[in-house]
């Protein structure tokens, strides 16, 4: 018999897959801590979940994950809430938030937006919440990657695609980074802690992500393409499945789709790339993970 976790943090929880995951878990009695960029969308999402599940314990925080300062502030707000109300324990962190941008946009830290939001923010937030995850008997860090991570490699000479930016290349790289992060996290922490990391391929989902920071052709193409996608609720099933406690079969498998382990790209299995990205990410966030 599987048991659901008690407390879950979900980023990008005001729409798409993040919101669907929050709704589904809340309906099953899980405490939801959501994060979103827009105040009004956070309020709406919280109200929606409460309307569906009146007994739900839901808290939303506003944070723009493109800003490391705001990721840190989010981490400390969540720590404080969990200490105060949820017994100081976090069972699952779902790094779901992602951005797409047609143009090279530098964040306030001077980093490329997609790399900052899709990879660095999750890396930093996981670090911020590590002490709470360590208190859980069986914790998970689930990062929403994508099939976009196939057929690409890390662009080490210019990780931020600053000089020759192409939206899709930067997006694909950030999704590959999600897998490398997950793999390296397990290599460093799975044996010495009770936390295990997973990456999820939600499949082609009918959300707005491809139309958010884009226009013209890319927006048009996304609108056509996403219509044939599955619903966010369908995509959330794999994430919900991976949160279940005490255990899932094949728990060593890193990459999951439709509630089954699938084979990630060859590049994503490269230990040297995973270690290198980890070190760079620590440097860029100004942190050192110590188990």
């Amino acid at each position: 018999m599987t048991v659901l976790p008690k407390t879950v943090v979900i980023t990008g929880a005001t729409s798409g897959i993040g919101l669907a995951t929050a709704r589904s878990l809340a309906a099953q009695g899980v405490n939801i801590i959501g994060a979103g960029r827009s105040q009004s969308r956070c309020v709406e999402a919280e109200a929606l979940i409460r309307a569906e599940t009146p007994a739900a314990r839901v808290n939303y925080f506003v944070a723009d994950l493109a800003s490391q300062r705001q990721v840190r502030a989010l981490g400390s707000a969540i720590r404080e809430l969990i200490q105060r109300e949820f017994g100081g324990k976090l069972d699952v962190l779902i790094n779901n938030a992602a951005a797409v941008s047609d143009w090279y946009v530098a964040t306030e830290d001077g980093y490329e937006m997609q790399f900052a939001v899709n990879h660095l923010a999750g890396f930093l937030l996981t670090y911020e919440l590590l002490p709470l995850l360590e208190m859980s008997a069986c914790a998970r860090v689930i990062t929403v990657s994508s099939g976009s991570h196939y057929h690409t490699r890390m662009h080490w000479q210019d990780l931020m695609y600053r000089k020759h930016y192409f939206c899709l290349s930067a997006y694909k790289q950030s999704k590959l980074a999600n897998l490398l992060f997950t793999r390296e996290f397990n290599r460093r922490l799975a044996d010495v802690s009770n936390i295990r990391a997973y990456a999820v391929d939600p499949g082609l989902v009918n959300t707005e992500i491809g139309a958010k920071g884009t226009g013209g052709l890319i927006q048009w193409f996304w609108n056509i393409r996403s219509r044939s996608g599955i619903s966010p609720a369908e995509a959330a099933k794999t994430i919900v499945y991976l949160t279940a406690i005490p255990d899932i079969p094949q728990k060593e498998a890193v990459y999951w789709k439709e509630c089954r382990p699938v084979e990630p790209s060859q590049y994503s299995k490269r230990a040297d790339a995973a270690a290198r990205l980890w070190e760079i990410s620590e440097q860029l966030c100004g942190i050192v993970y110590t188990p």
Binding site: W103, Y104, A106, E112, Y165, G215
Partner: peptide, 20 residues
């Protein structure tokens, strides 16, 4: 960025990335 979108096709083809 929304100003460039508003200019449509002309906006897109005349715009270059800042990093470049």
């Amino acid at each position: 960025i929304s100003g460039i979108f508003a200019q449509g096709f002309m906006g897109r083809i005349t715009t270059k990335n800042v990093g470049y």
